[in-house]
Nucleic acid binder design. Sequence first.
DNA 1: ATGGTGCCTGAAACCGGTTTCTGTTAACCG
DNA 2: CGGTTAACAGAAACCGGTTTCAGGCACCAT
Lengths: 343, 343
Amino acid sequence: MGNSRVTVREIARLAGVSVATVSRVSNGTGQVSEEMRRRVLEAIEKYGYRPDHLGRALAARRHGALGLVFPGLSGPYFTELIQGFESEAVPARASVHILCTHLREDSDDQVLEMARRVDGVAVVGGTISEPTLLRLAETVPVVVLAGRGLETVPAVSVDNAPAMTTLTRHLLVDHGLRDLVFVGNPDGSPDVSERWAGFQNAYHELDLAPPTEPLRLAMQQHDGVLAAERLLGGDGPAPQAVVCANDELALGVLVGALGRGLRVPEDLVITGFDDAPMAALVSPPLTTVRQPVRELAAEAARLILNAVDAPGVAPDGIVLPTEFVVRRSCGCPAGSPTGGTGK
Amino acid sequence: MGNSRVTVREIARLAGVSVATVSRVSNGTGQVSEEMRRRVLEAIEKYGYRPDHLGRALAARRHGALGLVFPGLSGPYFTELIQGFESEAVPARASVHILCTHLREDSDDQVLEMARRVDGVAVVGGTISEPTLLRLAETVPVVVLAGRGLETVPAVSVDNAPAMTTLTRHLLVDHGLRDLVFVGNPDGSPDVSERWAGFQNAYHELDLAPPTEPLRLAMQQHDGVLAAERLLGGDGPAPQAVVCANDELALGVLVGALGRGLRVPEDLVITGFDDAPMAALVSPPLTTVRQPVRELAAEAARLILNAVDAPGVAPDGIVLPTEFVVRRSCGCPAGSPTGGTGK
DNA sequence: ATGGTGCCTGAAACCGGTTTCTGTTAACCG
DNA sequence: CGGTTAACAGAAACCGGTTTCAGGCACCAT
């Protein structure tokens, strides 16, 4: 019944028609008489024929698949990313290939290899080298997801720097804090780099002396705990506020601070970035910046799908707006207003 | 240069050889004289030829791809799952297709459609209907990931029930607690169903009256916060302990409890399942069950890859052991010993 | 009756590889 | 020197679809 070994020619033979007719019926293209159509559909039904994807893809010179490349899969950010991408790709009848370059040394090769199996690729910013990105773009449409694009490679990202400037200004001006520490590695990803730039920019705008060097760590919760150890560990004075490059770090710092008996925000202010689900749930809830991660990835998928259909035109990049979310971890009372940073 | 429009026949023409020879050289199969090889390699190099994946796959009747199907992407569990699967597939030169059936009504169709693009599929338990699973298994090798297998479909899973029995017994016997509530929906996934069974079994083993009905909720952190609201909200007495179906729920309950001014474990005992990264970081650290999620998914990938190479033989399922991790949220002092539940 | 016009249909070419099978050549043997 | 064999190259078939193109046929107007 559901045997997948049945081919067009077989169905054609059994229905007593040509393969062209079978193809026409199974695709609904061209003109086919009622009688022929009936015979073919009957045979298709009876033998459970379904056209082979490879044959079809080869003829159409299109894979019906999109690729998504990211460094590793940590935390809520990437799950949102994948889901956003997938939610846009699947309805367009494109399957989703994923590749975590994560710790593999030959990842550039693998990205290039993936490019031969898909119609387009989204690469998370900072994942692969620029030369590889360019070579990739020669083969298939590419967009950079959360990062900076190139001449020929559009990017979709959020307004990281302005958002971080808004958040930092809030701490410096509205709360009168001075001794802030930025946690996150600006060299680790374009996102963090931009956030660090936005952080510095707030100081610059207010004619303050530049901030201290960032505490360069990875982006996971246990790195935040590590940050708390370093910053609150004893030697040297603790900062007034810890501005984290994402919510996971902030959550880790929060755990570390509370575990040391500090009160947040009274003894230490902590802020995040992303507005992960947990950010609103912890106590005190986290002041952070909401970014539309799902929408970002969906936009990337759409961009690629368009580029596949209309090759040649290199679309512009997209910058999505974020929203500054004021909660209690910055020292604001419960129920403060929130404000967007605008587009 | 890197033009991907170059075909075997073109290279053959340019090198003045036959396509067969080009194919032999590019695959390293068969016998080719030094002179021919040199000419071919030269042309390949010069025109940047790389064999098309579709043509190759069609001829080989193999996709070089594996599918991974899960309901939705929430929390650390699924990121681990994907990474484990991917880490095993990619070195075997198989790309990874993902599909979140998540909220789409026609997901069964999409799973069947995916089956036509891959050599094998891993399906997370409880994701698709049994009839669909059976039809899927007629097409490609399938394994169920974290769930129960069928006659023809092997499963890889962990010893959920014994592990939960061990944990529950610990609360009932070592801590003398009686009033436990299980949080999680046994109908939601095979994993939860088995954990609930293990929970009940501990009562049974000790000749206690059966526990109260489970609090049926989804598996995310905010569901845990919800659980805390329901259980600690005022009307009706609060339980002594909340046994959660996974760590995310437990973390949510913890946040909710602490937010209400309760002390954990003095006023309320909370336990989880999974040993997510955050479980050890919160205060108090979570007593839970560690399960080797990555290894589980890697095992599934291996099983499928083997089934692809040696079709016909239906391999046995695999049950991986878990480890009971005693931390402080159950009431044990810091630094208690931990014990595995064995295989 | 003749020529023109649409509508259907199927043979064959094509997508881009791999593989079998046949034939040539050179080396080796007695 | 004739015969066997191994090494190598290429033509053609194949994988499973789609699409072009030419032809058959019915119908209509002249």
